[in-house]
């Protein structure tokens, strides 16, 4: 019962954020220099100066002549129906472009996050178990260096080593599993720096628990104490952080997607900002914000079910 209650509470707190995301996307269009109706018509009629009557008519239809609140409602209604306008660059509906981009982005983000967890959890745990010793200091040093390097610098180093020197992997592209290796590794290594530190801190705090002393007193092997008892309690904060990271990787991996020509939503955003294709920019903002909210929610729900502290009812 209490699990259900906290889950519902969590969903409820995200509703205002979702509304905020839609307002942000709407305002980006409202604040954009130029008249959206004219921009749309210029593209639609393929003329430099569309007739004023047509512009006026479209403004009426799209609700741009009324107050900003009414405009927002009109825009939201159209957005919910899946009508976000057409891309000026390609002429395709924005929703089609977004649908093509969200898949690759989600693939890259999920692989990168899985790799991050695979690197950070063992590293952080090892550092915590050997706190103060040489292993710990080396791990902290690596984490400091990795957290100072921008992900695109690591990407360039990887391209130089694996693509140009060793010729093992292609420089850029999309479609095969080996195209995924370099972008995912660049993102994962940089993200795992902070994640490993968090894992270490969380593990250190858990290891102070009395039940760890009990487990050791029972004569359990150290691997069981750490792996089964401690990890269960140390992991939830890290999972929450990983969720935030995953949310930020959808659309946030802009530079990496651009370097590796990965057809994700981050690259779509950059291309549309460069060409000032406002309808696509707006669609990207809406998608990225929503994706973040959904992923955070999913991570928190998993956390609620995983965290043993929820089992006892409170």
């Amino acid at each position: 019962m209490s699990i259900l209650k906290s889950a519902i509470l969590r969903v409820a707190t995200l509703v205002p954020v979702l509304i905020g995301v839609s307002v942000a996307a709407f305002l980006s269009l409202a604040m954009f220099p130029g008249d959206p109706a004219e921009i749309a018509l210029t593209h639609l009629m393929e003329t430099e100066s569309p007739p004023q009557e047509a512009v006026q008519q479209l403004r009426d239809e799209m609700g741009y002549n009324s107050s900003i609140a009414v405009q927002y409602i009109c825009w939201l209604k159209r957005a919910v129906k899946g009508d976000l306008g057409d891309s000026i660059q390609s002429g395709q509906p924005v929703t089609t472009e977004l649908r093509q981009a969200i898949g690759p982005s989600m693939l890259l983000a999920s692989i990168a996050i899985i790799l991050t967890a695979l690197i950070a959890v063992p590293l952080g745990t090892t550092a915590a178990v050997n706190a103060g010793k040489a292993v710990d200091k080396v791990a902290l040093g690596i984490s400091l260096i990795l957290s100072s390097i921008p992900d695109f610098f690591l990407a360039i180093i990887f391209i130089l080593i694996f693509s140009l020197q060793l010729q093992l992997l292609p420089v850029a592209g999309y479609g095969n599993w080996y195209n995924l290796v370099l972008p995912a590794m660049s993102l994962a290594l940089i993200n795992s720096a902070i994640t490993a530190r968090l894992m270490r801190t969380s593990m250190l705090q858990t290891l102070r628990g009395k039940y760890i002393l009990t487990a050791r007193a029972k004569g359990l092997r150290e691997s069981v104490v750490i792996g089964r008892h401690a990890l269960k309690n140390a992991f939830p904060p890290v999972l929450h952080y990983l969720g935030t990271q995953a949310g930020h990787l959808i659309g946030g991996a802009v530079v990496i997607e651009s370097i590796f020509l990965w057809p994700g939503i981050g690259r779509l955003l950059v291309e549309s900002v460069r060409s000032r294709d406002i309808f696509v920019v707006q669609g990207c903002i809406l998608t990225i914000g929503t994706a973040y909210v959904v992923i955070i929610l999913a991570a928190d729900l998993i956390n609620i079910f995983l965290d043993p502290r929820f089992e006892e009812g409170e």
């Binding site: 205002p16 954020v17 905020g20 995301v21 307002v23 942000a24 980006s28 604040m31 954009f32 220099p33 949310g247 930020h248 659309g251 946030g252 802009v254 530079v255 981050g266 955003l269 950059v270 549309s272 900002v273 000032r276 406002i278 920019v281 990207c284 903002i285 990225i288 914000g289 973040y292 909210v293």
Partner: peptide
């Protein structure tokens, strides 16, 4: 705090790109 939450829903670089688009 709700306003802050909304701002945190976008990766920094995405919000920056949006400003530059404008």
């Amino acid at each position: 705090m709700r306003v802050t939450d909304c701002f945190l829903a976008f990766p920094g670089i995405v919000a920056a790109l949006l400003c530059i688009a404008i």
